[in-house]
């Protein structure tokens, strides 16, 4: 499958998806670590892709997303943002609301 098709399929079939460096238990970058921590604090299941072990995704997702860096949080097929935006939304409580709604919609689907 074309790499852009693969990315599209990933963001559309996973309601909460984090592209990051490393894994949630072993993040390889401080920005990914901060983001995954904020996401885990919401208490819902989420999918992740380690871009360090997926070089094709790492090379092409920035074009797909119009976003040059990692991590990237996607919810319901839309880019929510990187570390700075996720951290701000976590502070304000918006992140938990967004993530819980996405998880609830998935369960009832």
């Amino acid at each position: 499958m074309d790499i852009m098709e693969t990315i599209k399929e990933q963001v559309e079939s996973n309601p909460i998806l984090l592209y990051m460096k490393g894994s949630p238990n072993q993040p390889q970058c401080g920005f990914s670590a901060r983001t995954v921590q904020a996401l885990m604090a919401c208490g819902e299941r989420f999918a992740y892709v380690d871009v360090l072990s997926n070089p094709d995704i790492r090379a092409n997702l920035p074009k797909y997303a119009n976003w040059p860096t990692f991590p990237q949080l996607w919810v319901n097929g839309e880019l929510v943002g990187g570390c700075d935006i996720v951290a701000e939304m976590a502070e304000s409580g918006e992140l938990e609301t967004l993530v819980k709604e996405a998880a609830a919609a998935q369960q009832s689907a």
Binding site: G22, Q28, G30, F31, A33
Partner: peptide, 14 residues
Amino acid sequence: VRPSPDCLGGSKAE
């Protein structure tokens, strides 16, 4: 201002 996180050495791992 929110300070940046500590580095975890990812660019070495890369």
